[in-house]
Amino acid sequence: MDVLGILIPISLVLGLLGLGGFYWTLKRGMYEDPEGDSRRILQGDYDDKPKS
């Protein structure tokens, strides 16, 4: 039972850090263009062969 007294606060702190990190990424606008990456993959600008 002593272990729970240590693990519960640690898990709460880690959860709050994760939630804070998520809100930080939302505030910085990292999820503004979710379709941009998928459209960029389909463009023919890039090829799979290395330049010689």
Rank of each mutant, 00 (worst) to 15 (best):
V3P: 04
K49Y: 14
G20H: 07
R40G: 02
D2W: 02
R28Y: 01
Y46A: 09
D33A: 05
Y23P: 00
T25A: 03
G29Q: 06
D48Y: 08
V13M: 12
I6K: 05
L16I: 15
D45L: 04
R39G: 02
I41V: 10
T25H: 04
K51N: 03
D45E: 08
L7H: 01
L19G: 07
G15Q: 03
P50A: 09
D2N: 07
P34G: 05
G29V: 07
Y23K: 05
G15L: 12
L12S: 11
G5N: 10
L14W: 12
D2F: 09
R40F: 04
P9Y: 07
D33C: 02
S52F: 09
R28K: 11
D48C: 06
E35D: 13
G21R: 01
V13S: 12
P50R: 09
G29A: 10
D37Q: 10
F22E: 07
L17H: 01
S52E: 14
G15W: 05
W24F: 14
D47L: 02
W24N: 01
S52L: 11
D45K: 04
G21D: 04
G5K: 11
I8K: 14
D37I: 14
D45R: 06
L7V: 15
Y31A: 08
G44H: 03
V3Y: 13
G20P: 03
L42P: 00
Q43N: 10
I10Y: 03
Q43F: 03
Y23G: 01
K27I: 03
D37R: 12
G44V: 01
W24R: 09
Q43I: 00
F22W: 15
P9D: 09
R28C: 01
V13D: 05
L12N: 08
S11L: 15
K51W: 03
D48W: 09
D2L: 10
L17Q: 01
L17D: 03
G21W: 07
K49M: 04
K27M: 07
I6T: 12
G18T: 14
V13T: 15
L14R: 06
P50V: 05
T25M: 05
I8V: 15
T25L: 13
W24Y: 11
Y46S: 04
M30I: 03
L17E: 03
Y23M: 13
L19E: 06
D45G: 02
M1K: 06
L42D: 06
R40W: 07
R39E: 13
D47R: 11
R28Q: 10
I8L: 15
Y31T: 08
G29T: 06
L16W: 13
G36L: 10
L7A: 15
S11V: 11
G44K: 05
M30A: 02
